[in-house]
């Protein structure tokens, strides 16, 4: 099977004795979008660092593209070209005096010609919408812009897989939605596989095909967002919560007896369909593909009459 990553019983113990990962088994298909969800200290970052060979498992094996990962410097360079890593704090990643020099760092390490490097840098900055900032030093940029430049630095190496640690942490709602759309675009247009670690449960159903839930270094569950978020007990037991919109419908169903479908909506889009279905406007269920036509849609909005 076409499988970029396969982790086999991976455990990791840090030098101070912390067992940060315990017997983790995980797989990823090409083009897949995977989210790792878990509370603070559950081992998400540690797991991600195994995927491009920055950490080596204490026991168990990491396979990439059907072969066990080798840790010679030549093999690692090749692995890191194919598997890009965007760190949580862009200040850790952006070290060069200008945006352009920073994005060029990876491609130059791969030994590409200056001309080729210039081209890929330009393209990567264009993709993340930061081309006009190329000559600026990183400290003139906002947090969200730094984050996008960090992503460009990885994109410029033309990876097959991109790993992102907490891509939306510390971003405002607009920044969050921009990064999210950018990632989805990369996934759809270039078939780049994505793995990201997050606490942001509202984002997960919009993004992920599949989800791993980690707690205390172990994988406690694996499945689609729909499968895992309907198991409220599991979600609560690891100190997480469901998406807000899902919670609302759960309450409506349990407390108010509203005949909400058993498969609770996870996103605003799904919730919209469910509401319209409940109002008798839409026939099929929330996953159906029919065009939504609400009877209110073509009437002028009702004006609030004030005294």
């Amino acid at each position: 099977m076409d499988m970029p990553f396969y982790l086999e019983n991976v455990s990791h113990r840090y030098s101070d004795g912390t067992l940060a990962l315990e017997d983790v088994t995980m797989s990823m298909k090409r083009g897949e979008r995977i989210a790792l969800l878990g509370p603070n200290g559950s081992g998400k970052t540690t797991l991600l660092l195994h995927l491009n060979g920055i950490l080596k498992p204490t026991s168990g094996k990491v396979h990439f593209d059907g072969k066990p990962v080798e840790y010679s410097s030549k093999a690692l360079l090749e692995l890191r070209r194919r598997v890009g890593f965007v760190f949580q704090d862009p200040n850790d990643q952006l070290f060069a005096p200008t945006v352009r020099q920073d994005v060029a760092f990876g491609p130059l390490n791969l030994g590409q010609s200056a001309q080729e490097v210039r081209r890929v840098v330009e393209e990567a900055l264009d993709t993340v919408g930061m081309a006009e900032y190329a000559e600026k030093p990183p400290h003139f940029l906002s947090f969200g812009q730094k984050k996008r430049v960090a992503l460009a630095g990885v994109l410029a190496m033309q990876p097959e897989v991109i790993i992102m640690d907490e891509p939306t942490s510390n971003l405002d709602p607009r920044g969050t939605s921009e990064i999210l759309h950018l990632l989805l675009r990369l996934s759809r247009e270039r078939r780049i596989s994505l793995i990201l670690a997050t606490h942001d449960v509202d984002m997960v159903p919009l993004f992920a095909d599949r989800l791993y839930i980690l707690n205390k270094g172990r994988v406690v569950s694996e499945g689609t967002p729909r499968e895992l978020f309907s198991d409220t007990q599991l979600i609560r037991s690891v100190n997480l919560r469901s998406p807000r919109i899902t919670h609302l419908f759960e309450v409506l169903r349990k407390e108010d007896g509203v005949p909400v479908d058993e498969r609770l909506p996870l996103t605003i889009g799904e919730a919209r369909r469910e509401v319209l279905r409940l109002l008798g406007i839409l026939q099929d269920d929330l996953t159906g593909g029919s065009e939504v036509v609400s009877p209110w849609r073509h009437h002028p909005p009702i004006k609030n009459k004030r005294g």
Binding site: N52, I54, S73, L77, R80, R81, G84, F85, F87, D92, Q93, F95, A96, R100, Q101, A104, F105, G106, L108, N109, L110, A114, V117, R118, V121, G153, V154, M157
Partner: peptide
């Protein structure tokens, strides 16, 4: 982070 982008002890620049 530098290692993750293939740092080998030399910082190359355009």
């Amino acid at each position: 982070a530098m290692n993750a982008r293939g740092y080998d002890g030399t910082i190359r620049m355009l």
